[in-house]
Design a protein around this nucleic acid. Structure first.
Lengths: 224, 224
DNA sequence: GCAAAAGTGTTTGATATACACCCATGA
DNA sequence: TCATGGGTGTATATCAAACACTTTTGC
């Protein structure tokens, strides 16, 4: 078999919404290359492992997630000849969307990574700035024409929380009243639970669970 | 450096429109594995080559394209442990959209591959059926919200030709009059050349060149 | 009562669709 | 002069944006 050999890694752009801001999970590199620099979590693909399996494994190792309604998809591959000083490494970037995690992270309960608002992220190791930028752009684009925003929410959530996701990811404000009608009138997007929740001040909102709809017709439009 | 080593290949889903049908370029495998089976054209990535460079090189080798307005983008990576009986091979699928090529193909003028209507393609070597399906779906989706259909057309083309692309790729029919208004009213999508072309019968159509617009707002909608 | 958030109704403007109609050419 | 495809005008239905207004809670 002709061809040169590559090490193959999966790197993860793990996004969530915290305090109305889109945040990404980053780790500090413990060893060369780029020791001490911030980087996307990731690791090498194992002997008989498929790409999505490797990404799932890394996601569990980094966040302690067991079972969840989180979203995980492949972003694309990055293989510039000089992207890793150790040699030829192809990285398959993945995008994960998570609701805000409760407490400790990491499989053993220790915090492995740290959440950073994406707008405050500086330079990263390797070509991870590009992978991060591609992941954020993918997430922004997919909110327009899919129901993926619900992946940022817990199992049960209000329309306001969902709207907060759109506003955080896009950095815009959305008319609450038109948004309400739009999402509740999309078939199978939101399933009412019948329960209400009081958020402090104001009228309590109805709780919804995510439905089966994946596409959003017609799409939600950014001002742009 | 931990991790197992992979051979890395690029495989190409090369699409064009011929006789009002969406067609894909396939080659017959000359050697094991899967000798004699149809497969996507592709090859291994070289020593100091990036992925898009490798895909571009393969595209030139297969089609004899030199310079062109063709479109080439990365689709995604496929790395199931058993996808290649020779060992661990990661394939980075790419999608290329071409206008109908004039005559001979291949760098030396010989025909290397053969065009098949995508709806008539049977089983392919490796997991190339899946890569093809993903490429076709990507192309169909992108026609909706981008000006990519023009990549299927020659340098100068009429609105009818462009409409024929949509109809071939989607397998639908489109109202010619509304289509005309839609595409000609999108700023910077079509640049009039001032020339007209007679297509046999009927009133000659105006010739256009592709403009700078890449996004299509609002999108072209499939019936669905 | 007042502020704040949830939720509904209504008006208005933009736009997609359907299709009538005219234009330019070949046979 | 008829068939064929290019291209414009226009009525109608649909839908999104804007916003007035009501409901339900905490303070």
């Amino acid at each position: 078999m002709r061809g040169n050999l590559f090490a193959v890694a999966v790197d993860l752009v793990i996004l969530t919404v915290r305090d109305d801001r889109l945040c990404v999970l980053l780790v500090e590199r413990p060893a060369p290359p780029f020791p001490g620099d911030l980087a996307l979590p990731g690791g090498f693909v194992r002997q008989r492992e498929d790409l999505l399996d490797a990404a799932t494994r890394e996601l569990v190792e980094e966040t302690g997630l067991t079972v969840g309604r989180h979203h995980l998809e492949q972003l694309g591959s990055y293989a510039a000849p000089d992207r890793d000083p150790r040699g030829r490494v192809l990285s398959v970037g993945h995008l994960a969307l998570l609701p805000r995690l409760a407490g400790a992270m990491g499989e053993d309960g220790t915090a492995i990574g740290t959440w950073y608002p994406v707008c405050e992220v500086g330079s990263l190791a390797f070509d991870h700035e590009r992978i991060l930028a591609d992941g954020v752009e993918r997430a922004r684009a997919k909110l327009e024409y899919t129901t993926l925003a619900a992946s940022f929410c817990p199992a049960e959530f209000t329309v306001s929380q969902l709207r907060g996701v759109y506003e955080a990811v896009w950095g815009t404000t959305i008319d609450a009243r038109n948004f309400q009608r739009k999402v509740t009138s999309t078939p199978s997007f939101l399933l009412p639970t019948g329960q209400k929740v009081r958020t402090g001040r104001g009228r309590p909102g109805q709780l919804f669970r995510r439905g089966d709809a994946r596409a959003l017709h017609p799409p939600m439009l950014r001002d742009s």
